[in-house]
Nucleic acid binder design. Structure first.
Lengths: 424, 424
DNA sequence: CTGTTAGCGCATTCAT
DNA sequence: ATGAATGCGCTAACAG
């Protein structure tokens, strides 16, 4: 039913090998025959059989990008950036952020200047290589960048890695924090090693390097700890002392690092004792606050989503109505925190300051605008994409720490003088 | 280097054919030999060679999900839902959003109770979840659900479809509005037909059915027009008459439908003349407002992102300082609109009401909470996933319209009496 | 530059 | 219930 290489060869009156050569572009072919072949390809609407091609060449053009939550822009931004570097042939960094818009012509009304696809890969500039990517979307040496949603589940993460391994993926990018369970870490590590052995390039983005990570091409880690520390230092500088922390899932590295940064700052300010750095954690909404040091009592764990932030903050306010500031695990959680705080009749930042993490696009639009820590998600994702494609040389040691920048905005302010009208 | 089927066969002292049979599970194999094979597989850390398997079977377990903007939760939610239905064997609808836990889990070691399973191409009996998916993340008959980010570019959409076609994808789900350019529509339509002919199941989610869409398994379309109409009717009922509209890219179906709904309502209220339904559009920031009917003057096109909403709204307020309400293309744009309105010193909703579309998670947290139109994104995505897997029978005619529900919240209120303190 | 010849690793007929 | 062939469609050496 579907046309094969042989069909094209017959129609172009050449051998299958020749057709293969012009299709792959990495081999000298007479311009005349090349044209004939190309024409035959078009006439037959021929599309390469990927599996067959991969089998014969022992390589695939699949590149997998694993994310914890595809509905979270935190991952979407990184994944999109990585994809833009992988998908298009050379893809200058130009394509850029707004991504969405990039292609789709600006609102250009009716007729208006049409525009072809933005500036696509340097247009016909096709230097030596393949060159195709013709009108009909023939897709030349394109890689197929795909994102896989693990939902934060280590099992699914492993499953996806296996699936990708099975496809003999050219590269794999793992984004976001890892789960700290030793068993899973070992399993993931082993799997990545196997992938690397099989020739798959492995890149970590926004995830701490794994122990014995020789298997990995590069690990781009965010400075979550430093960011968390600076954020809390900012609050301390404003005069806050009773600072609540709405943390993410206890088992994730991201959660731990951000929390550690917070506590480092608190400890340095003498607000929590030395030697009590252990986090006993708490599932979230249950009111088990007996005993424990302040640092535990003022920390509530939840998920990285809005509702969780909302509930955890209510719990926090229940435990300690006198908090003057709430630091959230990330911006989304901060949004939920804001809702909870307002629901209790408190104002932001007059009664309670709120801070987030990540600086997602919507954070600047929150009212008041959210003080947060900016992570260069797009840049990191793009770099990971380039690393995965071998278009950029890995950082020394294969590890790079990406800075986190404090963004002070309206949601944080000095605490109010203690008056009686608090807590209703 | 990597183990092959033959290696496993040798180690288990059976033929390659037998190994293949137990791995695919759809053929009777003695329990004893099955166990031996499975053990050999584990010992050798064998992973099926996807390309070879796909080549021989002429099918692949790849399922592609195309989205316009992966950083936009609108798509992330749908894609995640679809993926959750596709990835996991049976995947009860329960799994739901936060997912985290869901996992394939059930470490069921080696043997495990077999069960009859999901039944790929309606083949054999298997009902439950295919036994495997063992500890080592062996990944049984799992499909590989992947999302591809087109960035809204028709060219990239085509490229991805070709890439997926080349991989002989089992199914493809296209989400979000389409570009209305006839050439592209035809190209996409032709491509989808070819995909369908090759056995790929095509499902549309949140996208209008294509003309002559016999190739498509099912099309789930959102009632953008109805939603847009009801939203504007709500504003009209509140007493607004000067309503501005910040539209999305002019060439997208979603944009057009929502705008049409808006104008239908305006027209029904006698606020714009009949026969002037043509949209002349406008690139956005340039102040070309000469002539034109009100409906054009009060409509500004932009992209589906925050900044665009911000800029378009500034333009709108410039053209007509007396607007008492602004309807945005979607929630994200609405956020930008809010920022612009506030920057002009106007209050929401006292001075200007604002409404969005989609009801994304953050919309309820906006201040004031955003009046919008709720689209059941998760449900639609999940349904699309099931349709793509053949787990659900298509709606009659292959087309289903999904309702849009008006959500009235704090960002809309009756317009103020006309006083002099407006417009600075 | 182009044609020939071999497999790539697995799923299937067929035979047992 | 199992094993022995055959070929899926393509790439990669080798010739020429």
């Amino acid at each position: 039913m579907t046309a094969t290489l042989a069909d094209v060869a017959a129609r172009a009156r050449v051998s299958a090998a020749t057709v293969s050569r012009v299709l792959n572009g990495n081999y000298p072919v007479a311009e005349a025959t090349r044209a004939r072949v190309l024409r035959a390809v078009d006439e037959l609407d021929y599309v390469l059989n990927g599996p067959a091609s991969s089998l014969a060449a022992a390589t695939s053009d699949l590149v997998g990008i694993l994310v914890n939550d595809i509905a979270d822009p935190f991952f979407g931004i990184m994944a999109g950036a990585a994809q833009s570097e992988i998908g298009e042939s050379g893809a200058g960094s130009g394509s850029g952020q707004a991504g969405s818009g990039a292609g789709s012509g600006a609102g250009s009304g009716a007729g208006s200047g049409q525009m072809t696809g933005s500036g696509r890969a340097g247009a016909s500039g096709r230097t030596g290589a393949s060159g195709r990517t013709g009108t009909s979307g023939r897709a030349g040496g394109e890689k197929l960048a795909v994102v896989c949603n693990t939902g934060g589940s280590p099992e699914r993460e492993l499953t996806y890695l296996t699936l990708l391994q099975r496809q003999r993926a050219a590269a794999v990018i793992l984004t976001g924090g890892a789960v700290e369970d030793p068993a899973h870490q070992a399993a993931i590590s082993a799997k990545l090693t196997k992938l690397a052995d099989a020739g798959t390039r492995v890149v970590l983005c926004g995830r701490p390097p794994l122990t014995g990570g020789e298997a990995v091409v590069a690990a781009l880690a965010f400075d979550n700890r430093g960011g968390g520390r600076r954020l809390t230092e900012h609050l301390l500088a404003l005069g806050h002392t009773r600072i609540g922390y709405v943390a993410g899932p206890a088992e994730r590295t991201t959660t731990r690092h951000r929390l550690e940064g917070h506590r480092d700052a608190m400890r340095a300010a003498g607000l929590i004792g030395y030697g009590t750095g252990r986090d006993t954690g708490d599932a979230g909404s249950k009111g088990s606050a007996e005993g424990a040091y302040d640092e535990d009592r003022l920390t509530v764990h939840g998920l990285y989503d809005r509702r969780s932030g909302y509930e955890a903050t209510l719990e926090l306010l229940r435990r300690e109505p006198e908090v003057t500031a709430v630091v959230a695990a990330n911006d989304t959680v901060a949004l939920g925190a804001c809702a909870a705080i307002r629901e209790r009749g408190l104002r932001i930042p007059e009664d309670v300051s709120v801070a987030g993490f990540d600086d997602l696009p919507f954070s600047v639009d929150a009212v008041p605008a959210l003080t947060t820590v900016r992570l260069p998600l797009f840049e990191a994702g793009a770099r990971a994409g380039r690393l995965a494609m071998g278009k950029e040389t890995p950082p020394p040691g294969g590890i790079a720490t990406i800075g986190a920048e404090l963004m002070v905005r309206g949601s944080t302010a000095p605490p109010r003088m203690r008056t009686a009208n608090r807590g209703r």
